[in-house]
Design a protein around this nucleic acid. Structure first.
Lengths: 355, 355
DNA sequence: TTGTAAGCGTTATCAT
DNA sequence: ATGATAACGCTTACAA
């Protein structure tokens, strides 16, 4: 009560504090603290009263204060190289779902795609001491970064890509890519091209590598040739898919009858560009992607689908469980993928399978 | 020094504190505080030494502690009904750019699109006392919510939609929609349909309304009829664009030669579906959207472009300036839009303008 | 069941 | 230029 007065004297723009509630309810701050957090040692009567008072005063605990006292911020960080690319925005949505359902906050760190402010992120005031756990989306981490993260010892999980030494959640990229290529082969294709992805941050991130490897293995396994001139490259964007198509079609010489793209966005770019060039899909060229992007169904794109939102949601759940004392909650898990056959793939030759 | 020892005794898993640095540098915590924050009253010599010690110890200030002491969290909240829709993901990227450039954190609140957890957000521990300012993306706020926000008195700006009583940043929707419709009319179209958007959260959010109004005004102004059966509805997604096309084309009767869509994503849905139905774009149907989505260029979609990332970046800048003492920084501004003519619009009739 | 009081790591106000 | 020291608002033994 005396306290309250003191505070008011210096312009209490900070809002209602626990002391105000305690005073108004005629109890100690300790009791208020227990009551509002739903902790055991409070009689039903006082709890009720305190809750009522708190409500009427519009009390809400200061996160800074409780953070200081408990050493926990109740927020987890989400590290993403991009936010407007399909995989990432979906994953962020998934993480957010789980987080806010459990009263945690989501602090977003966008690395801008170019590793630009990476250094700042790890060494300076950013990630560190602001979050209780970290969800990394599909990014390679340098050895130093991993070491740093381990030193500060917060739960960590990677979604959408494998990183040595770290628990990760994601599809089996080798299997997913194999499935895609096999679908093409099963359709009767023998002249199959590859549009593989490549991360512009030239770190040891091996999702692209694994997909390439799968392509080659399946082709070789089927006794099919892998032609270097049918191997093009993109950065996972629609735009790069367009460019890739042009690079593939520009030179004289035989053309493939099918193309496996390492992502749906690139596959779409290919299809848009093929349309412009008068190359019919799937009659002249079958196209398959990976992801099952929001637009894929509308475009009729055959793909190998995955659910980044569910992957991130699961990763977040693990992190939260770990924080809630369930040690060992965080571990690697391989997420499901499934072939979704639509209208951009068909047997080779003039007889398209189009309905 | 004595302090340090004490802390270590109880397992100093909290990390390096300001006291540790002070002790190691042989100065007081006050001086360390000034030094690390770059404040004036520190001699170059001591500052240098302190910085070196801090660096070597890996010191980084606890955000909770300084938050408690200063009353500021150094994080701003971003409220978004969706994150994986184009406008929002771009806006988030823009906000993040400005924020992290100025050492602020971005706390993301995703309302899940259905107003589901709105209540929790405003009344409970969420937004309140966790953030220094709030950036609202394209959402309607109820009067109560606005009142609440004003009571807690944090800077606030809305991006991508007008809300009474609040400063907002966004394009002039009336002008943008008018531009689109006029483009169609200039091309010679007279039978123009409208695919308007509608927010599922049935709040007083008037972006859709304004675009509809503009359509009607321009049509009337040109002496053109507005047919109710050519007025269809969507929720801004590709999927709803597909459905809208079907609804438009299903009934018998005359068909429009042009369609104005309130968003590019819907326009794309229309085009995909038109393709399936054998309706050629633009020969049989011209289509124009609003946004300039990442895919629009690849698809050749004519549209009225806007830059949500820049809008959000500007809004964020205003918020931060306001927080930095520049009172009056936050104010409404209308962002630019521009007509981008590509390949989905052409004069009506059998002679498409397609190259 | 409830209260007391000692932190938690900074910042900020005075002194010096 | 630097140093004590009192807040900041909450949590949490430990007492009562």
């Amino acid at each position: 009560m005396a306290r309250t007065t003191e505070r008011s004297q210096r312009g209490g723009h900070t809002g209602v504090s626990i002391e105000d509630v305690a005073a108004a309810a005629g109890v100690s701050t300790a009791t208020v603290s227990r009551a509002v957090r739903g902790l055991p040692r409070v009689s039903p009567a006082t709890r009720e009263k305190i809750l009522a008072v708190a409500e009427s005063l519009g009390y809400v605990a200061s996160s800074s204060a409780s953070g200081l006292a408990t050493g926990r911020t109740k927020t987890i960080g989400v590290l993403a190289p991009f936010v407007s690319r399909w995989f990432f925005s979906k994953a962020i949505e998934g993480a957010d779902r789980e987080l806010h359902a459990r009263q945690y906050n989501l602090s977003l760190f966008n690395l801008g795609g170019h590793g630009s402010n990476r250094e700042r992120l790890f060494s300076k005031t950013m990630v560190y001491k602001q979050i209780d756990a970290l969800l990394v989306l599909c990014m390679a981490l340098s050895h130093d970064e991993i070491e740093h993260l381990q030193k500060i010892d917060i739960p960590l999980v990677i979604v959408g890509g494998h990183v040595e030494e770290c628990p990760y959640i994601g599809i089996d990229d080798y299997a997913a890519a194999s499935t895609a290529v096999r679908h093409l082969i099963d359709l009767g294709h023998t002249d199959i091209a590859l549009l593989h992805g490549d991360d512009e941050t030239d770190l040891n991130f091996d999702v692209p590598r694994v997909r390439i490897q799968a392509f080659q293995d399946v082709m070789h396994g089927a006794g099919l040739p892998v032609r270097p001139e049918w191997d093009v490259w993109g950065d996972f964007t629609v735009h790069s898919g367009q460019e890739a198509f042009r690079r593939l079609w520009a030179p004289a010489g035989p053309k493939p009858t099918a193309l496996f793209c390492a992502s749906d966005e690139m596959a779409m770019g290919v299809i848009f560009e093929a349309n412009k060039a008068g190359v019919r899909v799937p009659e002249d060229l079958s196209v398959i992607g990976i992801d099952d992007h929001d637009f894929s169904d509308a475009m009729g794109l055959t793909t190998v689908g995955q659910r980044p939102d569910q992957q991130a949601e699961l990763g977040t759940k693990m992190l939260l469980d770990e924080l809630n004392g369930m040690a060992g909650s965080v571990h690697s898990v391989v997420a499901p993928h499934r072939l979704i056959v639509r209208r951009t793939t068909a047997p080779p030759g003039r007889t398209g399978a189009r309905a």
